[in-house]
């Protein structure tokens, strides 16, 4: 290890070290970031939800989008797996169905980056006991 010889060196070191704990930092205030939840129940996994989750993690990072990608349970849209729920900061969550890599790419480029809606939205019109 080379010694840190100046404040600038320290700042460089910090930038490098931050990638190591990025996953943890993101968890602190998820509401301020783009949140992508991938439904990972049996049907989702069978339809390729794991690959889609990996795709989101890798691509969002590559395209420099600050996002938290997590997995969740069955959302109930078994006819449209893999399904994902995207929450932009300060907005209501939107659910997309039949997400393959092509649609995932569209979601990132259109909805996440510009807020423009794309095909595959599943309208959520049920109520939960919280409301």
């Amino acid at each position: 290890m080379n010694k840190i010889k100046s404040l600038d060196d320290l700042k460089k070191m910090r930038a490098q070290a931050q990638t190591g704990i990025n996953v943890r930092e993101k968890s602190i205030d998820p509401a301020s970031r783009v949140q992508v939840k991938v439904a990972m129940a049996t049907c989702g996994i069978a339809s390729g939800a794991k690959e889609i989750m990996d795709f989101f993690i890798e691509q969002l990072d590559r395209r420099s989008v600050e996002a938290v990608v997590t997995q969740t349970g069955c959302m109930g849209y078994c006819y449209a797996e893999p399904t994902i729920e995207v929450t932009l900061p300060g907005q209501e969550p939107v659910v997309f169905g039949d997400v393959d890599k092509k649609r995932a790419d569209q979601i990132i480029e259109m909805y996440i980056k510009t807020g423009e809606l794309v095909d595959g939205i599943i309208p959520v019109n049920y109520r939960t006991i919280d409301k």
């Binding site: 404040l7 320290l10 070191m13 910090r14 490098q16 070290a17 931050q18 704990i21």
Partner: peptide, 18 residues
């Protein structure tokens, strides 16, 4: 130590020294 540095560790001493 790198995890501490990632959380702005040693930035305070760096800042006051300069």
């Amino acid at each position: 130590i790198e995890e501490y540095i990632a959380r702005d560790g040693y930035m305070a001493i760096g800042q006051i020294l300069s």
